[in-house]
Amino acid sequence: MDLLSILSNSLRGAFGPEAAIYALAAVGLNLHFGYTGLLNFGQVGFMLVGAYGTAVPVVAWGLPLWVGILIGIACAIALALLLGVPTLRLRGDYLAIATIAAAEVLRYIYRSEWAEPLTGGVFGITQFANDFYDFNPFSGPFVVGPFNFSANALWVMTVGWGGTLLACGLVALLIHSPWGRVLRSVREDEQAARSLGKNIFSYKMQSLILGGVLGALAGSLMAINTQALTPDVFMPILTFYLWTIMILGGASRIMGPVLGAIVFWFLLTFLDSLLRQAIGTGVIPSGWLESSDVGAIRFAFVGLGLMLLMMFRPAGLLGKQKELRLDVR
């Protein structure tokens, strides 16, 4: 057992491109749930349209990547309108079911044979983000202590974390404005906000669009990071990851999703490396667990973590427990 390498793996996971991507998507989710009270369980759908919006125009029509990213954003706005019009008038739990179903519907459409000419169906599409890497200012790998990232990963990380921090800044500005005040009042009590002349539907829609666009940008970056895209990456479980991240960090805290993503990925990679090493070195006898089980165990722990968090510390790491108790729902 090499604890040092496990730790350095975990640290790499905590700050790697995936953590940045998840953080960005969770910032969007935080705007939905943390500040507006929308039970969006289809954030992965926004990531999906963002990712395919980015990749398809490049592969299918030979457009430059930045146009693709814009198309991805446009798709997210269209999806938010499509999803919001029927569901934002409904009670919260209906919204949860409708959003998770909508995300699944999208995944079915994108992997269907109809869409295959564009999306490559279940086989997906690859190699569309070379434009992005052409702009990579880093020439060599980055090695400092436990950190060891390739030049490309470093570039994705820079853009990812940079984008996440920008998004956090924007959310902070918005939330501390009268606009944010209305948003938070919608979270607390829609009827009260309505009685004071606020068009709550419009605010919920704005929140859905804005958070959805952040999700789509995260999806774009996810596609760019792997340079390969299949619809089955966007399973509902990805949304559950984002919820865990948001609640772990603290919902309705500006930096909650960022801290949540870092801690989440640290723990996830830690568990992964630990189990793999334990199985590899025979600490866990091979009859008990195979290394192919590690993925499943990891997911089970995510679930357990989400349960325990929600039961015992629903405010997360940054939240104030006292404030949460005021929540009467």
Binding site: G92, A96, F240, T244, L289, D293, A296, F299, G303, L304
Partner: peptide, 29 residues
């Protein structure tokens, strides 16, 4: 126990999601 603590519905809802993940992946193992 959660009902006894009058936990919020959203809270229970998310616990159910966590529980689903646990059961599914333990079965997967």
């Amino acid at each position: 126990p959660m009902r006894r603590q009058s936990a919020g519905l959203i809270q229970q809802f998310i616990v159910a999601i966590g529980l689903a993940l646990v059961i599914r992946h333990v079965l997967l193992v």
